[in-house]
């Protein structure tokens, strides 16, 4: 255990809180049991697959090209997830793909261009996953909230359209709210870093024996990139969703809220 190993008993122990959550869900009839169990099993399966793939990617002599292919796969899957989470927004996939790809190119360019980490498989895949994973939540939220805001505030939006506002003008106050909501968790998380929690990359580096100040500097750079990526993709997705939810002649499409 001292070197970061987890045996079967440790893994089972870590499920203790999940068990508590299941008991609360059953006791309070929250009906979250199925989702909790599914999320737990799915996360475990995905991490096992990830571990196997990483082990393969990290084999000596393996080309980093395979790692980049894996990152591209993650970007495509993330864009697909955004599309599925906001199905009422037509043709969202290409916008999500473009936004996530552009953000990924910039962040990975900075990380490897500035030599924060060497361009090796052990850095490419985890950092790519960290960037995508952290911006995915905000991106999905930006798309969902934009659709929800325009559905809920339809009378206001149409009142603005009826005054001769363009779809962009009419929708701007609502997409602004949506983007703000989407970014709040990331901004709060950045504000709490170091005070409330120690971010993952920094913790990992310190556990691996790196000087804490060096670990902090690396973490700061990663956090800025994550915040920048989340903000950029959320804005692009929010504005992209806005343009998709109106027709070219400035009518708000009929939106059916999806559960």
């Amino acid at each position: 255990m001292g070197q970061g190993d987890v045996d079967a008993l440790g893994l089972v122990t870590s499920l203790l809180l999940i068990g508590v959550a299941l008991a609360v869900s059953l006791g309070q009839q929250l009906r979250l049991e199925k989702q909790l169990i599914w999320a737990t099993l799915r996360a475990f399966a995905q991490l096992i697959v990830m571990g196997i793939v990483l082990a393969w990617l990290l084999e000596p002599g393996r080309s980093v090209l395979y790692s980049w292919v894996w990152v591209v796969g993650m970007v495509v899957f993330a864009a697909w997830t955004v599309r599925n989470r906001a199905p009422e927004v037509p043709a969202l996939f290409p916008i999500a793909l473009a936004a996530l790809t552009a953000s990924m190119v910039v962040t990975m360019g900075v990380i490897f261009g500035l030599g924060i980490f060497p361009m090796e498989a052990r850095a490419i895949v985890p950092l790519g996953g960290m960037m995508i994973g952290n911006s995915l939540g905000s991106t999905v939220l930006a798309a969902r909230r934009t659709a929800d805001e325009l559905t809920d505030k339809r009378p206001e939006v149409e009142a603005r359209l009826a005054l001769g506002h363009s779809s962009t003008q009419a929708g701007r106050p609502y997409v602004r709210e949506a983007i703000k909501t989407a970014l709040t968790p990331r901004i709060e998380s950045a504000k709490a870093a170091g005070l409330v929690f120690l971010p993952g990359a920094m913790t990992g580096l310190i556990l691996a024996g790196v000087d804490p100040i060096d670990a902090v500097l690396v973490q700061a750079a990663i956090m800025y990139l994550i915040l920048g990526t989340a903000a950029t993709t959320s804005v692009v997705i929010g504005l992209g969703s806005l343009s998709r939810l109106f027709t070219t002649d400035h009518r708000l499409r009929r939106l059916v809220r999806k559960s």
Binding site: P155, E156, E158, A159, R160, L161, A162, L163, G164, H165, S166, P173, D249, H250, R251
Partner: peptide
């Protein structure tokens, strides 16, 4: 042009919509 049309043809809705 729908935007120019809507400034020529104003509308008041059933429920008052104030921002």
């Amino acid at each position: 042009d729908p935007l120019a049309l809507r400034r020529r043809v104003g509308m008041v809705f059933q429920q008052p919509v104030l921002f």
